[in-house]
Design a binder for these strands. Structure first.
Lengths: 195, 195
DNA sequence: TTGACATTAGAACGCGCGTTCTATATAAGA
DNA sequence: TCTTATATAGAACGCGCGTTCTAATGTCAA
């Protein structure tokens, strides 16, 4: 068995350390990670990774996993199928957190109950990201209180006329009688298949 | 204007620093963050945050944002509506990355094209998380190559009989003639509404 | 074999890190 | 008032961090 200490495996061990510890390892810790016995060797490989663009140092000189190896690679669309797995670089790396949540401070998650939005592809059991304190635009999906009950509805506005509409045609549209209690605007919806 | 340097604003500044830098600040940097002029004051507040359970130190003594303030709060279901925003603690904090992706090394993202899975609530433009090298079970949604074209289909297996089925009834089921080329199993699907 | 280059080891060093001490200002209660 | 608890400042300290040097070894081609 040949030594597996190439630049690829080193990058991989760094990424998995960061995933596990939510921080970068120290040079002493990297000695164990890379299975070398000198910090200078660590420095040697770190320099290589910086050259390659996997790592960078921020303004204070701290190591950072840059761009690549954050999140998942967005490799194209379904029609293109799975990638040749060659050409590792020049791929878009997308973090689900960053992609789905623009304002983490003003957002929360809800588990979907009921079937009022199945027409919009939101099914029972899905999670939705709700953004608070945001002015809904026509066509947005909002979390609203109707007759003391919270539901998700399309927000419709035509001129001065404002009403709520379910995506499921079985439910009637609701006009704002007194005032509309909007809990937030649905920013994203996610569904998990595998456990 | 009163001093806003309470434990709440300090926690917030730490979280936003971590979100921006993907690491914890040093004590010197926290002096600027907290707007104090001594590292001992920083240590003073850090201890408070550790007591509170917001922070913890890992085995090497490094600061870590623990549990709380990672990801988004999962506050319940749609029927429950938006939370009273009181009782800040004892909420489930969920990171989208951790929730949706179990095996980051073996996963990638695809943008959905076509309407073959609208029946399953997966629409054109959605992103799907595809997990490679996983044995599909009956009922899983898989990325498969059919007649040289990649599509998403339900994976059906009844005894020895294996075939692919679209969620859209307009498309016919497909039996495996030669061999089934499975690119991966769909682990999750996400849709973004606000830009 | 010889040379050039890539990779590893080890040691030394300076500086900044987080800790810890003392001292002081402020606020609340008795 | 005096006491106590809370919050801030400043300084000192030891240790570990990342850097940088020299030198030895491994690899491969000429």
């Amino acid at each position: 068995m040949k030594k597996t200490r190439d630049i690829k495996s080193i990058e991989h061990s760094l990424v998995s350390f960061y995933r596990g510890h939510k921080r970068m390892p120290t040079y002493a810790e990297m000695m164990d990670l890379f299975e070398v016995r000198s910090k200078s060797v660590v420095s040697y490989w770190i320099d290589k990774l910086i050259e390659k663009g996997v790592l960078e140092k921020d303004t204070q000189g701290y190591l950072k996993l840059s761009g690549v190896s954050f999140g998942l690679p967005l490799v194209g669309n379904v029609a293109a199928g799975l990638p040749a797995s060659a050409e590792e670089s020049s791929r878009d790396m997308v973090s689900m957190d960053d992609y789905l949540v623009s304002r983490p401070d003003a957002s929360f998650l809800l588990r979907v109950t009921g079937d009022s939005m199945v027409g919009a592809g939101i099914m029972e059991g899905d999670l939705v990201v709700v953004e608070k304190n945001r002015e809904p635009k026509n066509g947005d999906i909002v979390l609203a209180e109707v007759d003391g009950e919270w539901t998700m509805k399309y927000f419709r506005k035509q001129g001065r006329d404002v009403f709520l509409e379910a995506a499921n045609p079985a439910y009637p549209a609701i006009r704002a009688r007194d005032e509309l209690k909007i809990g937030g605007v649905i920013a994203a919806s996610v569904r998990k298949y595998l456990m």
